[in-house]
Design a protein around this nucleic acid. Structure first.
Lengths: 333, 333
DNA sequence: TTGAAAGCGCTAACAG
DNA sequence: CTGTTAGCGCTTTCAA
């Protein structure tokens, strides 16, 4: 910066003023041009580290996550976050802690050491979390997770609405007996989507029937088992809502083994819109998309708001933003 | 740091010495303890920004990639990189440039502004690249890609060995007529795996037969088409090497339509070990794994070496490291 | 309209 | 063994 000043025949202060476009300095256009010319000639770029030391703003935000890759499609979370950060001149400092709570502490510390302006704390599937205490020390937002005591702003998928939309899609097609191949884990998605199912049924004045929901492990071909049980009922369903695309995939296998066709004999709707499954099944799977990318965007946008003006937020009750899950219509319904 | 010094009754310099474990300073254990005590009591943590300004080392490395999520399983690249970085006290500064060359320039600039110690330039599938010129200005390694002029060190999967291993796996099982459902894109994986196939054949004194390789688009059910053509041959193959798991998946569909069983009628081997496909097919797919995680690790390890000692490397010819692809045996062979 | 000067929090000669 | 001192490259107050 000194070199630039010398070359432009001004003081280093002046250079700082024009580079940072400090309008109160009232630098005449002519001087500004001289400075910019010198900047260009010297290929000068401000040292962000020095700037950060002085100004306490690094234009960097920390992104902490438990697992980057376990549910691959969830990377869209990271992508959404990164895109918005980038668009605002921020960069993401990434740490992937594999579920180890102490690691998370340390990760936050390391980020604070590096003076990040704020932190995104993300999980790769929707669930409650208890973030380390030191997360309080700077602006933070939870992404695809929430703290049960609502001590942080957060954004999560609207599971209830998603479940409701899925089932209403089936109802609109005339189905009145709808099976639910449910997951057996105690997670928000499970509770939420079931609640949505009930809402949809209620909206159509249909009773909720316990025998039509079968809870299985979605990872282990649970959809197969659930479908078999459902179709073995005295009065089998004409449509099955699968907790996720993976279960839908094994539901497909079951129906094929039963020589039943999709969607003519049985309609299937999934959840997740998982890349390598949904579009590649035959027939292509109608499913609900998880708004990963959008949640990533929302989280960073909100965080930047917090950073700019920490008081803009009502501290009494940090917001929990519910992001809708769009319906992806293909050919299984 | 001043506060700590005051509390410990020493100078700020001394604090710096003990915090940084400068052994040449020969601070007696007793003083050290006093300092550490003060550090603990005050909850002092060094400001990495200030430290970076002074020492020109930020312990941060830039990670630039074209697409984080397009091939989801490739995120393992990022994970491997992050894990090694973390283990060495480094953090990753992430930028995802969606194929826009100018963005990459800018990304590198922004990282240099932030004084990263080095840069990893990664692609999400193996291919040649021409990195922006400014990448030369600091230690850098290419990950899952290479510059045709070999101006940077790089790590890529050993496609040739992978193809060879896949085919030899089939040969060892006694197959002598092996089809190849090849991808039709002009990418290193395509050339390399074909070369590997030829090597394997040669090793068994078998002729290479053009009619046994069918090139299709792997994304659009190309495996189905290829398999149908192959099995329609007067003398059909008893085993098919599929360019990737996605093609293998549609090859499965074709064989099912032909009422042929896997592996009894036809053996199938894939490539990629793609999470949501390989293990979930029935029978589970034998395939070659892409060493994404390992390449990520290697890249950061090597980069850290470059950072510590930029001259350790022979500058005449930057290394291109070939990472072997492990065979994942399941039940389709 | 511009410049001098004081730091931001730290490292590392150098001196004692 | 420990302290004094001079910056790292920048922002920003204050004065001119």
């Amino acid at each position: 910066m000194n070199d630039v000043a010398k070359r432009a025949g001004v003081s280093q202060t002046t250079v700082s003023f024009v580079v940072n476009q400090v309008s109160e300095a009232n630098i005449p256009p002519e001087t500004q041009e001289r400075v910019w010319a010198a900047v260009k000639e010297l290929g000068y770029r401000p040292n962000a580290i020095a700037r950060g030391l002085r100004s306490n703003k690094t234009h960097t935000i920390g992104f902490i996550t438990d697992h980057i890759a376990t549910t691959p499609y969830a990377v869209r979370i990271l992508e959404g976050a990164q895109d918005i950060a980038w668009a605002n001149g921020y960069l993401l400092l990434l740490v992937n802690t594999s579920g180890d709570q102490r690691l998370k502490q340390t990760a936050i510390d390391m980020m604070m050491d590096r003076q990040v302006d704020g932190i995104i704390y993300a999980t790769m599937y929707h669930r409650p979390v208890s973030p380390p205490a030191n997360l309080n020390e700077l602006p933070a937002v939870l992404l695809d997770c929430y703290s049960p005591d609502r001590s942080f702003p957060s954004v999560v998928p609207d599971e209830v609405l998603g479940g409701r939309t899925a089932v209403e899609t089936l109802l609109k097609k005339g189905h009145r007996r709808i099976g639910f191949a449910q997951d057996s884990s105690p997670i928000p998605a499970v509770f939420g989507r079931l609640k949505g199912l009930k809402q949809a049924l209620a909206a159509y004045d249909l009773p909720f029937q316990e025998e039509l929901v079968r809870s299985k492990l979605s990872a282990q071909g649970g959809g197969y088992e659930a479908t078999m049980q459902l179709m073995g009922l005295p009065e089998p369903p004409t449509a099955i809502f699968c907790f996720n695309d993976r279960m839908a995939m094994s539901a497909y296998n079951a129906l094929r083994d039963l020589k039943l066709s999709i969607p003519d004999d049985v309609a299937i709707i999934g959840f997740d819109n998982q890349d390598l499954i949904a579009a590649d099944l035959s027939p292509p799977l109608t499913t609900m998309a998880l708004p990963h990318y959008e949640m990533g965007q929302w989280a960073v946008e909100y965080l930047l708001g917090l950073i700019e003006d920490p008081d803009q937020i009502n501290p009494d009750q940090p917001i929990q933003h519910l992001m809708p899950c769009p319906l992806i219509e293909r050919q299984s319904v």
